[in-house]
Write a protein that binds this DNA or RNA. Structure first.
Lengths: 196, 196
DNA sequence: GTTAGCATGTAAGGAGTTACATGATTTT
DNA sequence: AAAATCATGTAACTCCTTACATGCTAAC
């Protein structure tokens, strides 16, 4: 479902679930947290916020005279209960495109607000996505090995190396999470451990 | 200039400059050459081809009874002279977005059809783009080191490593090209050494 | 004869960018 | 008082994806 690209919505909900904020600030936070989303234009941000408000996931709080700056026209956005519920659902659930680069990055950057099992689920999902691409690349590299010129080969080899590194990285993260989950005794309802 | 995302047009012109082909085949070739462009839908491909024909860069040749399959409805596309000129201009010239991941990959995969000086130019341009992103990431990692949770940190560190590897890779490619260009006798008008 | 793959296209609609429009506040 | 930056928004336009529509050919 979710119309507006998912990754952006998710990131917004994630950031706001920690600290309510207004659009301008929010954008900066998003950019600094995700060096990936290099740009998030206001033309994308404000309409998305609006849509989230319309769907009852956020509330606007017109900020009047907070502290030193009276009458500022800023609007602070905060999650509603259903917004929080939606956020939890989105983080855990895997719609199509949940394992894409951007979406994965957003989800991982929100790990501090999720349970161990969710984290493992996301990491495993990402790993199989990466492995899938790896397999594709290897296949068509094997098929066309002689027909591709050296530059294309070099390029594909570099891509392949990057994917292999990512798999190794994910494996490490996964086993770290798994041992944590074991140490936990498995009774974790919401064991928000270690969010620092 | 150039409307349709550049990368796609460039890739099409590049493939067709080697071998005229019809759309269906072309798409497969594009996908196999670039494991990056995971998907190229017909909804993007055919309109682009049409637009290229309208601009006089390609010609359609209705293939009638070539060989064993008579009356096939396929349309072979081939570059015109101005298409070739446009291709050469596009490969060498650097519009905005010329150093993006996709566009760079396309350009590099077409290195076999370019001169040494062009190749070096492209590699240098890409390198400075990557270095720029690296600097950004490092800056805001330094700024927020304590405020980011361990997962976000891990994620950004991984991104950073990937960028560093790419720079090293590019450096190697660059020096390879440069020594080739030197062996060339240095008579190449544009010897662009070392613009860093 | 029916499934699978070849082959070309179009229409609707989504997602986001760019450029514009406006005004307050802080710094120089 | 000018310039920078905070702050919010909209409208037009671009590009692409999805789903549909069509028909031929090859293989089983």
């Amino acid at each position: 479902m979710a119309k507006r690209s998912d990754a952006l919505e998710l990131a917004i909900l994630g950031v706001l679930s920690k600290t309510p904020q207004h659009g301008y600030e929010l954008r900066k936070r998003l950019i600094s947290v995700l060096g990936l989303f290099s740009t998030i234009s206001y033309g994308a941000l404000y309409p998305t916020l609006k849509s989230l408000v319309e769907r009852g996931l956020l509330v606007e709080q017109d900020e009047v005279g907070t502290g030193k700056y009276p009458k500022r026209a800023r609007i602070t956005y905060a999650l509603t209960e259903s917004g929080l519920a939606h956020f939890n659902a989105l983080v855990a659930d895997s719609g199509p495109g949940a394992w894409d680069d951007d979406t994965f990055a957003v989800r991982m950057s929100l790990f501090g607000q999720t349970e161990v099992s969710t984290r493992i689920h996301i990491l495993l999902g990402r790993r199989s996505r990466v492995e899938e691409r790896l397999a594709n690349l290897q296949t068509n590299l094997a098929k066309g090995r002689e027909r591709l010129d050296s530059y294309t080969l070099e390029l594909q080899q570099h891509g392949l190396d990057a994917l292999e590194r990512e798999v190794r990285w994910l494996n490490e993260l996964i086993s770290r999470e798994q041992s944590q989950s074991a140490a936990d005794g498995g009774n974790s309802a919401i064991s928000q451990v270690n969010n620092k």
